[in-house]
Design a binder for these strands. Structure first.
Lengths: 130, 130
DNA sequence: TCAAAGGTTCACATTGATGTGAGGGCAACT
DNA sequence: AGTTGCCCTCACATCAATGTGAACCTTTGA
């Protein structure tokens, strides 16, 4: 598929798709005319990228962890693909992801608790003095 | 405590503490000489802010959810503090936080699976062809 | 008293992710 | 053929978060 359709199907501006390519996150083929040709799988991949970006990961980090997401099925674990350094980097990144999950979970629960308290009419000093 | 100590204790540069104040996330008192005076609780608050920033939230959103984090104990739910619009905004934000959690969890698991597969020597098509 | 350390404001620079537009080629349809 | 729409590259602008430094005042300690 061409860039416009991918943009439509993902909601991500074509400008960003080109940017992600520049950052090494996408590698579309080129048609004879120079147009980018994306496989169908690109839709999911772009969604992955956007999700991770929204979670505060940088393109640099995403580039490292993206190869892990092609499913653990057809892994092609060349030693140069997963050097000990890369593995260590990945472990560290999992650590940081876990911290983010914990942080978000804590804050989600706090906000939910706040909303619940508010909704159950625990409004002490103003508003509903009947 | 003064800004330098808060910076030391949180690892956040003083510049950023002033910026967070400008964004309405911190409101230190001022001493007679004009120096900012932070309460001890500021340490935790700054950690909250940093955590949420790292998770991709903006200062604008953090400003909205920060009041929820002072513990559901001493909530002072004035109606102007939690208007229906604010409540709705909070619910929507919880939604987005949940999406982030899901995304991070999925990706964490994928990376872990990848690492596990790599470590258990499942390197199919290259490297160890004996 | 003098110097060093740390505080203040103000302002400009940078970085990463994005917006926007110019200038030009390719493709499809009337 | 000409128009419309999509693609290309290149470049400059923007925005939020952050770095950096100047110019100046306050506290601290030799």
């Amino acid at each position: 598929m061409k860039i416009g359709e991918l943009a439509r199907r993902t909601g991500v501006p074509a400008r960003m798709l080109r940017y992600y390519e520049e950052q090494g996150l996408l590698s579309p083929n080129r048609a004879d005319n120079g147009y980018r040709a994306y496989p169908d799988s690109a839709v999911d991949r772009v969604r992955q990228i956007r999700g991770l970006l929204d979670c505060g990961l940088t393109t640099e980090i995403i580039r490292v962890i993206l190869p892990c997401l092609d499913g653990p099925d057809h892994i092609y674990l060349l030693p140069e693909n997963l050097s000990p350094q890369t593995a260590e980097l990945l472990r560290r990144e999992v650590e940081r992801i876990q911290q983010r999950i914990d942080c978000l979970t804590r804050n989600r629960d706090a906000v939910l608790a706040y909303l619940a308290a508010a909704q159950s009419g625990v409004a002490p000093c103003a508003g509903n003095h009947h």
